[in-house]
Nucleic acid binder design. Structure first.
Lengths: 184, 184
DNA sequence: ATAGAAATTATACGACCTTATAATTTCTAT
DNA sequence: ATAGAAATTATAAGGTCGTATAATTTCTAT
């Protein structure tokens, strides 16, 4: 992942990775066979790590649905996630997902876990505050898309807005949902 | 761009492109000097083309702000844009933008044009229907992010939702704005 | 028509790529 | 301690990459 951060797609090579890791090239082939298998492994590690970090932050927040969702949003815009380097790695993964069934299978699993997490947060809030969500799954997909879209936009153009603006925009989105915009 | 569709990042090479175009390699070097210059040129062409296509569809719609915004949304989810191959090209561009000042400069200009277009559509609707938008620019960035995020999510995982679901989710977002969620 | 400019091709060099194979070192169970 | 397994290294073959240079063809203005 350090190689991808440094060189983008060009960083995905046995030579670059072995040099960065301080081992010889054959070692990577020996353990992973194909280079793509190592990349897929790195993707799985990173996906799970990020989601676990978010979940940990949510669980560390006060137990009210309001505050848990807020922790989710704020963590998403913290430097750990809202980071150019992190997106750089992600973009390379996206490119591979589009052309590799192996990577695509991993992505579908990770994406599903992510959306399910969002579903839990949103439905808890809806139950606590008494507003309606027509299709919980689609609504969660929209919120996820908003987060990803803001992440992408900021990383490609950090001058466009500040992370705190992103947080405010997510809260606005939640406010729209609270006012019944996703009731059907 | 056909090379990128076929082979992803690996398609960005003088040899692949010259073979696809039916010319020799030297021709590309002669006209563009560096390969990156050709890629940046392709990015400019594609960005402007997509935005112009959307604007044309909006201008072809009935002149009410409601219907113009609706045309914008529906065009965004039409097969011309909401397409795996189109995203495949875009993802490669994103990766290059993150590592190339030349590409980054192009992207900033294109993104700005896009957001300004959205600003016009949203403010017209707000004026016509009499609801408030606290920060027009940030709100437009959020809507743009939602569109991009849904595009990305669907292309990476087409089974997650249908294009018409995406349209509905955008309309829900607009409904939230209409109900004052972005008033401040 | 023709000279000069522009466009295009042909060819080649050095660098990096993936992958494979054999040799060597390190580990581990007895 | 030591034999066998596992991990790691060393080395090499064959392919693609970007880019440069000279030769050739096509265009264009006179």
């Amino acid at each position: 992942m350090r190689c991808i951060v440094k060189h983008g797609n060009a960083g995905v090579s046995v030579r670059q990775i072995s040099a960065e890791a301080g081992v010889t090239q054959g070692l990577i082939t020996h353990h992973f066979g194909e280079i793509n298998e190592l990349v897929a492994y790195a993707f799985d590690i990173m996906s799970e790590g990020l989601l676990q970090a978010i979940i940990a932050a949510v669980d560390a927040a006060p137990p009210s649905p309001r505050e848990r969702l807020d922790a989710f949003i704020e963590t998403s815009f913290s430097p750990m996630l809202f980071d150019r380097d992190v997106l750089g790695v992600w973009v390379v993964f996206w490119g591979l997902i589009l052309h590799s069934p192996r990577m695509s299978a991993s992505q579908q699993g990770e994406y599903s876990s992510y959306v399910i997490t969002v579903e839990g947060l949103l439905s808890d809030l809806a139950n606590a505050e008494g507003f309606a969500i027509g299709n919980l799954r689609l609504t969660s997909i929209a919120f996820t898309a908003l987060l990803d879209g803001l992440w992408l936009a900021w990383c490609l153009n950090p001058a466009a807005f500040r992370p705190e603006d992103g947080i405010a925009l997510c809260r606005n989105w939640v406010e729209g949902m609270r006012r019944g915009a996703y009731a059907e």
